[in-house]
Design a protein around this nucleic acid. Structure first.
Lengths: 237, 237
DNA sequence: TCAAAAGTGTTCGTGTTACACCCATGG
DNA sequence: CCATGGGTGTAACACGAACACTTTTGA
């Protein structure tokens, strides 16, 4: 037997769209800096050991609570399991460690208090990451991009109420490319994902027509566009 | 501490489209019958304990090799993790058991030798299932249905060469509803998922035009229709 | 010549993009 | 009244569903 046991950790890739100092919104991930060897100084995903009597969602929530306000996490879903026996040095951890990853989303204007070793990092300018955490973040981002297109997960990144231009920025940052506010509106309204609140925002510093405010119709995860092709007969075009 | 440790098992939902005696093809899952308590007589997914020095894919492959010929498994992917501390009675297993599930696909004409306790069961007429295995199968089926529509996973269920009517039956069984061979052809050819081989099949017992044979262009999993909406600018439609 | 199965052509609806144009506000 | 940003209208297009029609075989 190479080592006595297998232990299990949960790790969360928590994303938020954040305004940089430069003013442009960027999809950012929550990371903490390792103060001890191995990989001292490298940045790591929040999470930790799964306890013997908790399920994984409970565990992620518990461990994230040490970093951010739980109220802020609007969506949490399972991603993949990383089980390479050599993914972390078991000499150090006393056993081989399996990691289950999760995707967590925090709505945009929130600015939770963070511990001193913890910080948000824009996903396209990440610091050196510990172990296989880079792969996990890439994985999570790919999943987020895909799901923005056929589900309503956007609700978990956007403010409660928002102008369409704001939503455009949120989607743009998360997807990594510009989206047209016009079409975004039509797609999401037709699908019933967003609804106008009736109210309008004040117009900005430099004038301009005041924006109508919208909100997400539902704040629970829902698939809105199930079939890319091969729909069952009689279900729309 | 309620129990001393956590152990980990891998379970595979292996699907194949199989001809029933009645002649009509049915999506079926590979199951074995428990000979011991608890849940004696209930049917279970193939799999078992993860060893301390193997990763999960290796483990699934190893454990499936006891049931079917490994050559036959054309696609294997991770599904979800089931981590409810009470999902199996830990009094019996000596610890709490976390399960990672996998989706395995076997191409259609293969008929691997099976151990005596193991059998294929049509998914819409499943026997009583052990523990939370029913949920796992439902989960796997949902995933398969979704992926047939926007990836080329079909290659892992279909024969190497096939007439379009055969493929229609395979897709129909897997999806759970009739699909039109005409449209199936157009969708898959346009996406470059299938290619005509140039050869044709002999026509059947009762006449009829001989069918052109096709094959899947690639035998590696690939996403063919990435965006349901919100494509990056300049990409089609 | 007829039935059976395969394959092709065509129409229609719809979702999505792209872009031009109109509207409302602040200075 | 003009710049700025928000919103609406509309055209083009690609995709897929549905279905009629033609082609090729066996009896």
């Amino acid at each position: 037997m190479p080592h006595a046991s297998t232990s299990h950790e949960v790790l969360a890739v928590v994303f938020q769209v954040r305004q940089l100092d430069t003013g442009n919104p960027q999809l950012s991930a929550l990371l903490w800096e390792r103060a001890m060897e191995p990989q001292r100084g490298a940045w790591a995903l929040p999470g930790g050991q799964l306890r013997d009597d908790e399920d994984m969602f409970t565990s992620v929530r518990r461990q994230l609570a040490e970093k951010v306000d739980l109220q802020e996490i609007a969506h949490l879903e399972q991603l993949a399991v990383f089980s390479d026996p050599g993914r972390v040095p078991h000499a150090v951890f006393g056993s081989r460690v399996i990691a289950s990853t999760f995707l967590g989303l925090v709505p945009s204007p929130a600015t939770p208090e963070l511990p001193s070793d913890t910080r948000w990092h824009p996903v396209d300018a990440l610091p050196p990451l510990a172990f296989d955490h880079q792969t996990m973040i890439t994985n999570a981002h790919t999943r987020l991009v895909a799901k923005l297109s056929y589900t309503n997960v956007g609700f978990a990144l956007a403010p409660r109420q928002f102008a369409l231009s704001t939503l455009r920025d949120v989607y743009g940052a998360a997807l990594g490319y510009q989206v047209d506010a016009t079409n975004l509106q039509r797609v999401l309204v037709r699908r019933g994902v967003i609804t106008p609140t009736g109210t309008t925002a004040k117009s900005g510093r430099s004038g301009g027509r005041p924006a109508a405010l919208y909100r997400f119709t539902e704040s629970r995860y829902r698939v809105t566009d199930e079939f890319a092709a091969l729909r069952p007969p009689g279900v729309g075009a």
